[in-house]
Computed example of a mutant assay.
Amino acid sequence: MKNLTILIAIPVLMLLAACQKESFYQGDHFFVKNAGAEMPVFVKGNIASGTFILFLHGGPGGNASLPSFMPVSQELEKDFAFAYWDQRGSGLSGGNPDPATFTVEQFVEDLDLVVDVIRQRFNNPRIVIYGISWGGALGSAYLSTADYQQKIDGFICMNSGHNLEDGLPKSVVFVKNYAQQQIDLGVDVAYWTEARDWCAKEPDMTVVDNYFKYDSYLSNTNAYRRNPDQEVQGPEVGARGTMNSYLSLAIFFNGRYLAKRFNILELNLSKDMERIKIHSLVIWGRHDGVNTIEMGYDAYSSIGGPDFTEKELVILENSAHEGYMEEQELFINTFKRFVKGL
């Protein structure tokens, strides 16, 4: 009898979970398959607007699935449709792509397929590419390739890693300075002395082992959030909500596999970005320690070249790398103004 009770209880729990999931499945969902990868795209928001924001997540190895549940995303979805694409080897992507396909050129090809599917599936809507961090770099690479930019109506480039050749050494200096501040405050002096001295050696940041050593220090700074103790609104699903949505534990593991096999440490797209001649908005956190403010100025000056005028730079004065969470109201207002003005 006890076993029978358990057997009955399991379907009931599954049914309840299925009922709870309904609110998480609003919108459209499809996969783009290419070169061994099966990449999900979730389309949510105001599809009737005819304006689609194609979100390019960071990393490499982040995901677009979790950000789709952020309050800031849901606010913007009232005005625009958002297409959340998990890139190859990232997020909820599947298949079995060969690590040899982890190249900028392959990611650009994947992105172009996503763009074409959106255009065909939704009757040629306006498309705005919105890339954060690595996503900004991918957007820059895409718009600099062939005539792809003719398919796109606008570009929002936020805290991008478009030029790691110049940018990573600047971030190393950020870590060194942060370490010295902690030492002066008497905080974990042994650890931060080790970090400061390592950074002071000006390590070659094109070496993968050096990158992961630096990244271990960076993760303990305020490079991502100017005030790490600031309460911000994150994804609404939380840990429990993951069980009641399309999310899965894959978002925690796929990216780690990709990051170890996708070397972009010598990436420098600054010169290529002069080819971009579409309306562009560059948004940067003043206190970003990942891609420092100098790289924000570089992104702005690079897009379209020095004489191109259809671009704008907005600096979030109280933010680091995650200004979309740290200064949500300003970010949302800036985002809406730009897109509606296209």
Rank of each mutant, 00 (worst) to 15 (best):
G186T: 00
V187G: 00
V187R: 01
V187D: 04
D188A: 08
D188P: 06
D188N: 07
D188C: 01
V189A: 10
V189K: 08
A190Y: 04
Y191C: 01
W192G: 08
T193L: 01
E194C: 00
A195T: 14
R196D: 00
D197P: 04
D197E: 11
W198A: 06
W198L: 11
W198E: 13
C199V: 07
C199F: 09
A200R: 12
K201Y: 06
P203T: 13
D204E: 06
D204V: 00
V207C: 10
V208W: 14
V208Y: 10
V208R: 09
V208L: 11
D209E: 11
N210Q: 05
N210P: 09
N210S: 11
N210R: 13
Y211T: 10
F212Y: 15
F212W: 14
F212G: 03
K213G: 03
K213E: 12
Y214L: 05
D215H: 08
S216W: 04
Y217L: 05
Y217G: 05
Y217F: 15
Y217A: 08
L218W: 12
L218N: 08
L218K: 12
S219D: 11
T221V: 10
A223E: 09
A223F: 13
A223I: 02
A223Q: 05
R226W: 09
R226G: 11
R226Q: 11
N227Q: 10
N227Y: 14
N227V: 04
P228E: 02
P228T: 03
P228L: 01
D229L: 14
D229P: 01
E231C: 08
V232H: 05
V232W: 11
V232S: 06
Q233I: 04
Q233C: 03
P235N: 02
P235I: 02
P235K: 01
E236R: 12
E236D: 15
E236H: 03
E236Y: 10
V237W: 15
V237T: 08
V237C: 05
A239Q: 14
A239W: 13
A239S: 15
A239T: 12
G241C: 01
T242Q: 10
T242D: 05
T242N: 04
M243H: 02
M243T: 00
S245I: 01
S245E: 02
Y246V: 00
L247M: 12
L247I: 05
L247Y: 12
